[in-house]
Design a binder for these strands. Structure first.
Lengths: 178, 178
DNA sequence: TATTGTTATACTCTATAACTATA
DNA sequence: TATAGTTATAGAGTATAACAATA
């Protein structure tokens, strides 16, 4: 009843939706990756570093949308726990390439499935098809938002890979969740 | 459902997408509502308070997903700038009802359109139909996430209103924007 | 005793600038 | 001079607990 003034201001606000969903995700993901240094952020650094060819910290920070200065502490903690190693880039000694250790790769492999469950639960209000649609649309928006400066062409790669059957690019690759 | 997975680890991570999009939104929205006390949060408080019947701080905090203690400072600043007023609830003198002043309502009215432009720009990678779909799906997820404890049945109201033609009494409501 | 709002404290995240070492 | 990374600092945002007034 009522609704005298206009509409439903908040629930139609994209900022409200994003905030609610983002915080809910962080809360849930913390239960899965909370013991990793840096929590969800640490997990993202681990997955971002697990690539060929190895990347330096600037590239990782750019992809994750976090500051270089934050990443330094994050990698400090991850390295202290033996999950990643820093080695100087032979081509540019200013740069330090970050690669996960076997322990780090194990850590991400374990959590990836658990995080998949978290994501499914977060999207439980949607049908599988709707969830898939939401993921695809969100990824499009995220990639476009990252492309303000076109350093991350990798998003386009993922876009392309999402459209054609999943074999493609790279190498190992796990079947992900259902 | 369709595949659309089996791709790269990070870009398929819901946490990555949400983080990127959420931060991009906050950055953009800050240009529009940055001069309001509390920035985007302050704007949300203003819109959440602009309802009949008036709500107390607990209800606003719940709807916005922020802590009561944060809301106190937020409302302090909004009240100091003359954008909202607190008055005791006649029915429960512990409670304080928050309502926007005329200046506060003006402030939100002005920014609402600007924020709409910000949202459109954030979703510029999507077609209008896709953007509408994303909004609807996100709202479903957000409402479900808020309903962990079923205090916010207001989400269902909005859901229902979004499906059927704008029913109800009299008022003009928003021009569908979808 | 439970609840609404306030206050104080601390911990995390983030943003800025200065510094180094390389280029 | 410019760049990659580090360090230090301050500012938000958030979470927790203690407290006062009221129910």
């Amino acid at each position: 009843m009522s609704g005298a003034q206009g509409s439903d201001p908040i629930n139609d606000d994209l900022g409200w939706m994003l905030g609610v969903v983002f915080r809910a995700y962080i809360r849930a993901a913390d239960h899965v990756v909370g013991d990793l240094p840096g929590g969800p952020r640490g997990y993202q650094v681990l997955t971002s570093a697990d690539r060929e060819p190895a990347r330096n910290q600037g590239a990782i920070a750019e992809e994750l949308g976090i500051d270089r200065t934050v990443l330094t502490y994050l990698i400090d903690d991850l390295e202290r726990d033996g999950l990643v190693v820093r080695r100087p880039d032979p081509a540019d000694r200013r740069s330090r390439l970050v690669t996960p250790t076997d322990a780090g790769r194990d850590a991400t492999r374990h959590r990836r499935e658990a995080l998949g469950a978290v994501e499914s639960r977060l999207l439980r209000a949607l049908s599988p098809e709707q969830a898939s649609t939401l993921r695809a649309l969100l990824r499009q928006v995220a990639c476009a938002a990252q492309e303000v400066d076109p350093l991350t062409d990798l998003c386009q790669v993922v876009e392309a890979a999402a459209e054609r059957p999943p074999a493609g690019r790279g190498g190992r690759r796990r079947p992900t969740r259902t």
